[in-house]
Computed example of a mutant assay.
Amino acid sequence: MSRLKRLQNIDGLLNALTIATDQCSLSEIDVNLLNDATVTLNKLKIKKGLTDKQYKSEISDIVALLIKFLI
Rank of each mutant, 00 (worst) to 15 (best):
L66F: 01
L13W: 12
N32K: 14
I10R: 07
L44Y: 04
S27F: 04
S57D: 14
D22M: 09
D36L: 07
L65R: 01
I19L: 08
L14V: 01
I46K: 14
D11T: 04
L13G: 05
R6H: 14
A16R: 13
L65Q: 05
N32V: 08
L33Y: 12
D61T: 09
T18P: 02
L13D: 06
A16L: 06
S2V: 07
N42E: 13
K47P: 00
A20Y: 04
T18G: 15
S27M: 00
L70D: 08
N35F: 05
N42K: 13
Q23M: 04
K5P: 08
A16S: 10
Q8F: 10
Q54M: 15
N35L: 10
Q8A: 15
D30K: 13
L33E: 08
L41W: 02
T21H: 06
L65W: 02
Q23W: 02
E28T: 14
D11Y: 09
V39K: 01
N15L: 11
K56H: 03
T18Y: 11
V31F: 04
T18S: 15
L65P: 00
K68N: 11
L7V: 11
C24D: 10
I67E: 07
A37C: 05
K47G: 07
T51S: 14
L65C: 06
L17N: 11
E28R: 13
S60I: 07
K45E: 07
L65H: 07
V63D: 01
I71F: 05
